[in-house]
Design a binder for these strands. Sequence first.
DNA 1: CCCAAAGTCTGTACGCTGTACAGAGATCGA
DNA 2: TCGATCTCTGTACAGCGTACAGACTTTGGG
Lengths: 223, 223
Amino acid sequence: MKPGPKRSLSEDAIVGAALKLLGERGGDAMSMRSIASEVGVAPNALYTYFPDKAAVLRAVVDRLIGEQSLDVFTDRGVPWRRRVHEVALGLRTRLLDHPGATRLLLGAPMDGPRALAFGERLLDLLTEAGLSEEDAARASYTLIVYLLGSIALEAAELDPTQPAPPEAERVAERRKGFDAVPAEAFPRTAATASVMAAYISTDQYLWGLDRVLDGLTGRRGRS
Amino acid sequence: MKPGPKRSLSEDAIVGAALKLLGERGGDAMSMRSIASEVGVAPNALYTYFPDKAAVLRAVVDRLIGEQSLDVFTDRGVPWRRRVHEVALGLRTRLLDHPGATRLLLGAPMDGPRALAFGERLLDLLTEAGLSEEDAARASYTLIVYLLGSIALEAAELDPTQPAPPEAERVAERRKGFDAVPAEAFPRTAATASVMAAYISTDQYLWGLDRVLDGLTGRRGRS
DNA sequence: CCCAAAGTCTGTACGCTGTACAGAGATCGA
DNA sequence: TCGATCTCTGTACAGCGTACAGACTTTGGG
């Protein structure tokens, strides 16, 4: 065993404190100083556990991904596409619960252990859906890009400080923004303003997901 | 006309200075203080032109989007799918030129004038491809999610301080990272490590794009 | 058993950040 | 010419990430 006093903390405790701050006071509140005071320690003591702040954030991201249960993936009996829907919806609600966190998701590579487990299950599911090994891998990335991209763009419009208003309210808010678009210069944008206002809706999220899945599996989607 | 001395700067000059810093010294160098000193003014003078730093960043993002020429969209004679490819590739190289900027892209809603123009042209193209007005709008968002998501995930692995190494080098670097993955616990991940290493490649980018386009247009993609 | 090595934590400090506030000077319309 | 109004500067504050030195605790080896 190695010398030195016992550690008074753990990486997990630190990530937990960071996550608590994230939920309560938004992403900007996740400072080394406030995390440290949350766990009752001097700020620089955190550097015993993580080399720098970026590492803490990576761990937070991995934990967030881990919050999505992996059971859904392997729930046989349910058709695979429905299982993808469930995972997609689960991931979305889980991440939008922490609006500030989503910025992190696309700002740091996802190479944590939980992200790895998530990817492995996704590969299982896609091969089950009939894809070759290589296609499943490529498809899995395409899927993740779509999911995280959607969630990130949605989170970008949220105030990270507080919980998100209901979807209908947010769509209505967006709709108002489009009233300012000059119809002469941007006719198509103006004409489809209602559709564009609903870009952040669950409906659009699933619509796009289904189109992506159609493309990935080579199935003819719409009639 | 309104009283007060003439402005010594313009919003454009400020955005330009920010962009210069972004390119030369990375995203973290875009501080209000360094932007101000770049244009030769006290830091707080910037608040005459923008309400806060976030507004500056939004303007920077819009300018970056505007760098992508819109001519490609309307270049008839070239089949529409090829035009999408060109725009996609153009956007990617342009944004990856400023690795630090891509974080901003998904961190702020894209509602600037240039983003609007981009969207309008994309709608043109998609209706030309045979989509209904509503489907074109939904498809355009799905497409943007895919493009920006891909670029963001790719940029996440880059050092924002300096220009990106060549693609082959980056793929090789990723490939090494997968050697650490235990094959027993993650068999599929380990088996397709080469494919996954190439997630950030132009090839994968276009592969996914084509699958997404297949799904959006209801075309059977692969044989 | 004791002592050197190694590890954990604290206090302090540096240089940086965004931006609020007060005031100086310039420029306008009346 | 005289307010009113706008632009810019100086100063200041609270907060940030983290480097450094040192106090203290625990360990294995002689």
